[in-house]
């Protein structure tokens, strides 16, 4: 049950027998148990992904005959300022919102990992924003930022910060911040709950031993919590990065991509073209989004060195 601390290379050597032994009955049976999952992934993930990649190479516009154009859609994307603005928004959004949410989530997880009265209740309550559909969260924040009767302007007035109401969604920067805040409100609980599971898996006696060695709180966090939490931390970052890359609902409801397309994400750009019957172009945008997610995933797996499992 104890963790094996041999370097990863030992495992690799141990896993290279001269000949692969024949599959046991259990392994064959295991394969059958897994087959519905493979079927599911193939049907609902692999086929649509391959279909989208294939479609991105065609001029697939609903009122025109379909024609193979190879990379023409990507060339058109390259020349489209709204594509670059969407890439920039998606990238900035990931860079700002993911670290913010994971840091906040880590803080919440550390607190919730300590024993205190009503801890179970607080843990459950923290999850509420995550349980709310993103479209509803977008609508809630629309009411928060509303110019005439929103809570944000009410607070400004109440705290005597500004008598004049602010048009929160009216400039590129403030609309960006508004989207980040709404998203952080909604998805920080997700980060918190996964990190909390990771914290709970760290054996308590490690901390006991460290205390015997007179390690302070900061030292315990740096030398025990952080290294042992790293795999879970990487998984959380990976999940949040991919979710943040494809952000759609909150923006669609809250800003509609405005003002002037400043908060339009790549997935929203793809959606707009799909909805207009411009399928090949929308597919090309989706492929770019897919590639960005793949790059992020590879980077995280590299950093996390998952080959040891």
């Amino acid at each position: 049950m104890t963790r094996d601390h041999r370097p990863a290379s030992d495992f690799r050597q141990a896993r290279q027998p001269a000949r692969r032994p024949p599959l046991t009955r259990d392994q064959v049976r295991g394969f059958w148990f897994l087959s519905p999952l493979f079927g599911f992934i193939g049907l609902f993930i692999l086929i649509p992904v391959l279909g989208t990649i294939a479609d991105s190479l065609f001029r697939d516009i609903v009122y025109l005959p379909v024609r193979f154009v190879f990379l023409e859609n990507f060339r058109a994307l390259w020349a489209d300022p709204s594509f670059w603005s969407a890439v920039r928004f998606s990238a900035l959004f990931v860079l700002v919102s993911v670290p913010l949410e994971v840091l906040l989530g880590l803080g919440i997880a550390l607190v919730l990992n300590e024993p205190f009265a009503l801890r179970g209740w607080v843990r459950a309550c923290i999850l509420i924003p995550w349980a709310i559909p993103a479209a509803v969260a977008g609508r809630i924040f629309q009411l928060v930022y509303n110019f005439s009767y929103g809570a944000a302007n009410y607070l400004l007035d109440l705290l005597s910060i500004s008598r004049e109401p602010l048009n929160w969604l009216g400039s590129d920067l403030s609309a960006f911040i508004a989207v980040v805040v709404a998203d952080a409100w909604q998805t920080t609980p997700f980060a918190a709950i996964i990190l909390l599971a990771g914290l709970a898996a760290i054996p308590e006696d490690l901390y006991g031993q460290a205390k015997v060695d007179q390690a302070g709180m900061v030292a315990r966090f740096r030398h025990i919590t952080l290294p042992l939490l790293k795999p879970v931390l990487i998984v959380t970052l990976l999940f949040r990065t991919i979710q943040a890359l494809r952000i759609f609902d909150i923006i669609f409801v809250l800003t509609g991509g405005g003002p002037g397309g400043a908060t339009e994400s790549l997935s929203m750009l793809a959606y707009r073209h799909f909805a207009a019957g411009d399928f090949g172009y929308g597919s090309a945008a989706s492929v770019v989004l897919f590639l960005m997610a793949v790059v992020a995933a590879i980077a995280y797996v590299r950093v996390g060195r998952f080959q040891e499992t």
């Binding site: 009216g170 590129d172 991509g257 405005g258 003002p259 002037g260 397309g261 909805a275 207009a276």
Partner: peptide, 22 residues
């Protein structure tokens, strides 16, 4: 026009950008 929706979306974006004084 068959691609009116695409024309309109470009216009929406640029008109909105002007109203936001970008």
């Amino acid at each position: 026009l068959p691609n009116y929706t695409l024309i309109s979306e470009i216009m929406q974006r640029r008109l909105s950008g002007a109203l936001a004084r970008d």
